[in-house]
């Protein structure tokens, strides 16, 4: 039996996964069984891409991680906080940023205020501190000159980059991307993916639901395949795309590539 001193030494090498999902089920009120017995672990700094046909439950899976969807069975532990025990869900969401398919920027606020709002109201930052952070993030996503614009004045790609900056302004430990490029015109997909690649390089823990196979192959540490609520494949990009094990993934890949 190891002493407590030994346990402390072991800690850095055997790290707890930052997201641990165990046997979760989700049944919508209309009877659709969206998630069936899904288990998954994501380590800190890992980039995990989830792929699958529409209606496969991949977005639902992503949304359970910050409890935009509740689960019917199983357990989710994020950053040491169990989502099945009642508690402060806002505390958890402060650490989990999310980027939506439809951007969901606040149309009545300027780009700068979109980014500053949550850090000021939730983290208690002063306006000047929040603006400094926002300006820095806008520079990172290449939109410094748009700080005073309003979301409806921006292109889709620009809006999505602002949405990423808005999520990052909370300095989350995990970023969730729910089909971030699906609502974009083709010529704008690249600019958003570039920002995401840059973020992945900086060591951010990311879970990305997407149809961009190129992005998955290039950036992901692991790729997951989901179909009809089940997690069918979990492997590194090379074996995922070149040596797919399940037959359904082979079919899926032959249709999309």
């Amino acid at each position: 039996m190891p002493s407590t001193a030994d346990a402390e030494v072991l800690k850095p090498t055997v790290a707890e996964p930052i997201i641990k999902v165990t046997d979760i089920h989700k049944v919508y009120p209309n009877g659709v069984h969206a998630l069936k017995n899904v288990s998954q672990e994501v380590q800190e700094g890992e980039v995990v891409v989830v792929i699958g046909p529409s209606g496969s439950g991949k977005s639902t899976f992503l949304r359970t991680i910050n409890q935009l969807e509740t689960i019917n069975a199983g357990e989710i532990v994020v950053d040491g906080i169990s989502l099945t025990t009642p508690g402060d869900v806002n505390k958890l969401r402060e650490e989990v940023g999310m980027v939506f398919q439809s951007f969901n920027l606040f149309p009545h606020l300027s780009v700068l205020d979109n980014i500053c709002l949550a850090p000021m109201k939730v983290r208690g930052l002063s306006r000047s501190d929040a603006e400094d952070r926002a300006v820095e993030l806008l520079a990172k996503v290449g939109l410094s000159e748009k700080a005073r614009s309003y979301p409806p004045q921006l292109s889709g790609g620009q809006q999505q980059r602002v949405a990423i900056a808005r999520a990052l302004a909370m300095q989350p430990r995990i970023m969730l991307f729910d089909e971030p490029t699906s609502a974009l015109d083709p010529e704008m997909v690249g600019e958003v993916l570039d920002v995401m690649k840059q973020l992945a390089k900086s060591g951010m823990t990311m879970v990305v639901v997407t149809h961009e196979m190129g992005f998955a192959r290039e950036v992901a540490d692991r790729v997951l395949f989901m179909e009809s609520g089940e997690l069918l494949e979990d492997s590194c990009p090379d074996s995922f795309f070149d040596r797919p094990e399940s037959e359904r993934l082979q079919n899926f890949l032959s249709q999309v590539i």
Binding site: L68, H108, A118, V122, A167, M170
Partner: peptide
């Protein structure tokens, strides 16, 4: 007001009341 607005506010860690006050109500007002 689009459901996504509430989700975006909540996903940033803002409470239901805060999201209502700073995001939903100003838009609903118009």
């Amino acid at each position: 007001i689009n459901k996504g607005q509430m989700e975006a506010g909540r996903s940033l860690g803002m409470g239901r009341g805060q999201t209502m006050r700073y995001i939903i109500l100003p838009q609903a007002f118009k």
